[in-house]
């Protein structure tokens, strides 16, 4: 009971400011301080979302966007794992590849779009690849730095007990890099959500990004804002799921954060 109460308080605190903003927004809309053709009222947005849902369109848009983000996320993470382990563990490979990867990661997402269209057309494959590219960089960077940050003293334990090669990677490098890998996964997922917008703006007939541009071309601000809010909510939700998974997998961690959580519960 007490636990539940405290959880409730923590969640509630995060809601205070957003809810106040919505209330203010509503008051300004109703009193005519904000022009509704530029910024529709919150009620209008909710009714737009409900209408889209009734027409059956909304779930389809959300579904396809979620599909693209998850596929891109999985693909990007898989490639990042491969390169991260190789580059983190083998110095020669790192010297060969890392500078190139570091240079590529500074290219903004939109700059890739024309190239991906040219190579793969306006297809699912090109969208998923673009998202995977976005996810790749943060996951890769954090994994490499995690692997390189492994405590030498723990590695000595591995050596003394005859651990080498893949067994050393599996039992020592990877688990030790896990916290940093999760940081990478979370920022990778964030980038995945950014790249899906770029991918869907470049040409799509479905998806939240499509809904966004559709709202713009047909001059319906309520649709634009509704899509932005949906992006925010889905992004937050998927990040939360990842955080939960991380907490469970990293429950061995003896950190300030876990202490804080134990106290809060």
């Amino acid at each position: 009971m007490r636990q539940w109460n405290k959880n409730f308080v923590v969640t509630g605190m995060g809601l205070i400011i957003p809810v106040s903003i919505v209330i203010l927004w509503h008051i300004f809309s109703v009193s005519g301080l904000i022009a509704t053709n530029i910024m529709p009222s919150p009620l209008k947005i909710v009714s737009t979302i409900v209408d889209l849902f009734r027409e059956g369109e909304l779930l389809e848009h959300i579904g396809i966007t979620l599909y693209r983000v998850s596929m891109g996320f999985l693909l990007g993470t898989a490639i990042a794992l491969l390169f991260g382990v190789l580059n983190g563990y083998f110095r020669t490979i790192r010297y060969l590849l890392d500078p190139l990867i570091q240079a590529l990661r500074n290219i903004p997402s939109l700059a890739w779009v024309p190239l991906f269209i040219l190579w793969m057309g306006i297809s699912e494959a090109s969208k998923i690849s673009l998202i995977a590219l976005g996810v790749f960089f943060p996951v890769y960077l954090n994994l490499v730095s995690g692997i390189q940050g492994v405590d030498r003293r723990l590695l000595e334990v591995g050596w003394v007990h005859g651990y080498q090669g893949w067994r050393l990677i599996r039992h020592f490098f990877l688990p030790s890099a896990l916290p940093s890998f999760f940081v990478g996964l979370r920022s990778g997922l964030g980038l995945g959500w950014m790249f899906v917008v770029a991918a869907e703006i470049m040409g799509a007939s479905k998806g939240l990004g499509f809904l966004l541009t559709d709202g713009q071309t047909t001059g319906r601000p309520a649709i634009i804002i509704a899509s932005i809010l949906l992006f925010a909510m889905l992004g937050k939700l998927t990040d939360y799921l990842l955080e939960l998974a991380g907490r469970r997998i990293l429950r061995w961690q003896d950190s300030y954060e876990s202490l804080e959580r134990r106290k809060a519960l």
Binding site: L154, V157, V160, H161, G162, F172, D254
Partner: peptide, 27 residues
């Protein structure tokens, strides 16, 4: 490294990500 030689360090150097029994199993 010699398989018949083991060393106990000043700090225990247990792997935080393994439970006690799995730490012992390393050896």
């Amino acid at each position: 490294i010699h398989p018949d030689t083991r060393i106990l360090f000043q700090d225990a150097r247990l792997l935080p990500w393994k439970r006690v029994i799995d730490n012992v199993q390393i050896g």
